[in-house]
Every structure is written in C-alpha cells, then in structure tokens.
Amino acid sequence: MATSSDILYSVRNLTVEYETRHGVVKGVDDVSLDIRRGEILGLVGESGSGKSTLGKAMMRLRNGSARITSGELWFDGQNLMELSERQMRDLRGSRLGMVFQDPMTSLNPVQRIVEHLTETMLTHEPEWTEEEARARAEELVERLGIRRERVKDYPHQMSGGMRQRVMIALALALNCDLVIADEPTTSLDVIVEAKFLDLLKELRDEFNLTILLITHNIGVVAEVADRVAVMYAAKLVEIGDVNQVFEKPLHPYTEGLLKSVPNIELDSGALYKMEGSPPDLSSPPPGCRFHPRCPYMMEEVCPIYDPPFAPPEGASEDTRVACWLHHPHPQKVAIGA
C-alpha cells in the first residue's frame, strides 16, 4: 500500500461536464486516481472514453465547453481547485508538463524550436537571461539526441520523432514533476515509437519524472508502464500493476481489450472482437455501463446497480475494479443486513 508521501498527484471524485447540442454530457464521471512519485501510469481506453478530457482537466486547461463540476485535484499537497488561474498558470510548464498527440500541430509553425524553449523558461524563470535560457535549451535538445544547430530550425523542418522529442524537451525545460503525455506516439511510426518509448524510460530515471501516459494502445502500456488504469465510458473500470492486469485482468472490458490485441498472447488463439460499441455519453446505460456488451452480465444486478470502484474481495489495496463479479452483490448485502 502506498503511503500519502509517495503519491504525487491524486484525483478525487472528479467530474467534468461539457455541453453539446444533445444536452450536458459527463466526459469524466466521478473518477478517483492516484499517481505515485516516479512511476509511469498508463491510462488506456477507447476513443471517446474520456481519457484525454481527464488529462486536460488534471492541468485545469480550458477545453471547449468542458467544465470541472466537482472533485478535487491534489498535486504535491496542494488542492489545484483552490488555486487562482494565475497560480495555476505558474504551475503549468514548470511543474506540470503536457505532451500532445500530434507533434506537427502542437508546435507553433512560425516559431523556431529554440524560441519555444526559451519562451517557456523565461515565462517561469524571468530572472534568467536570454543567453542562459538559450544555452540550457541547446544542452537539453542535445541530450534528447537532436543536433545543437537544429534548434534554430522551424518545426516544419524536423521529422515527426524529432518534434516529439522537442515536446518532451519543453516539459523538461524546467524539470516538470509530472508529465501528462496524451497519445504521444500515435502519430509516429513503429520504429520511431519504440525509440521514443525507450527515451521516455531513460528520462524518467534521469530526471526523476512521473509520467501519466494516455493511450489507446495496450502495447505501448505493456512496454513502459508500471501500472495501468483502464477507462470506459467516462469511468475508471480497473487499475492495477501492469503485470498483474495483463496476466489476470479482472474486468470483462479489460479482458476484451487484451484479447483483441493481436500480439499479446492469451489463451484464446483467434483474434477476438468485442461485441457492440461504446455507449452514447449523453444517455449512458443504467447500472454498470459495460453491461450491454458484457459476456458475464448478470440480469438481476448489472443493469440496475452501478458497481463501486474498489479493491476486489481478498485482494490488496493496490488493485481496484468496478465489476459485480468481484464485489458482494447488492441484494446479498441487503439480505445480509
């Protein structure tokens, strides 16, 4: 069990709502999550499950009409929800960093690489001189395997992998404690992706980083993450140690996800395809949100009662799952009481 000093960032009962033409939708629904110091936590889920919304909300970034309607965000002993926008801005880029999905579009096309870096540094450390910042930028870029001279280039003159390393450099520019990487490898090809993931692991040790890796790619998580959290229809359904989750998934959705990945060996030989599609978040199904697609659905429980997100019976505190297969059924509880 992790002690509170081990925990760098703690999300408590976070709900994010946004408005659409079909009414108010909960993009993140009552999610609680702890990120430990120095770990790489993988957050997986399908498109539309709310994982990116969660990532942006953790930085309190404005995201369209999305609003945090309830919950607490504890970062290193501070509740971010109580900070002013100004204080929040000071944290972004200096202690909380973000790496976006598409490095092509996340760098300003008319700004040189070095200007991106020095601008970030000078925003947070105004007493640094231009030369200091520039020197540090060159050093950093070189550490990440880009030649020093290339800092004068514009983003369009660099390859996808190089640009993604620049994005990392931006997060490292002021030694961020937590880096939220939102689908950082999706737009990279496989070889560049592998190199990038190796670099990520190296940097974690070297700079003492904590990384939240948001992805829809289970393979990426298997490669680098220490722990994994699975998100489905705006809610967390399972969290646990990466080896344990991959060997013995508890939630039927996690199981389905793993079975549908071709290169991870599970007992079934043929490639598995999950039934149905994720629910429309403007009117999610009652009870457990996964029940319409669940092969183990129990008629008298799952469509009616929302399962708690808690450690399963007899397991350690580190693992949590939201599934009635692993919790005492509500009827039984009622009868027992």
Binding site: L61, R89, F100, L170
Partner: peptide, 10 residues
C-alpha cells in the same frame, strides 16, 4: 493544437 500546447506550458 499549438495554442493549447502553449497554454499548457503556462
């Protein structure tokens, strides 16, 4: 996206 990224850098 780069505007969001700039905001995310504070």
């Amino acid at each position: 996206e780069y505007i969001g990224a700039a905001r995310a850098r504070g």
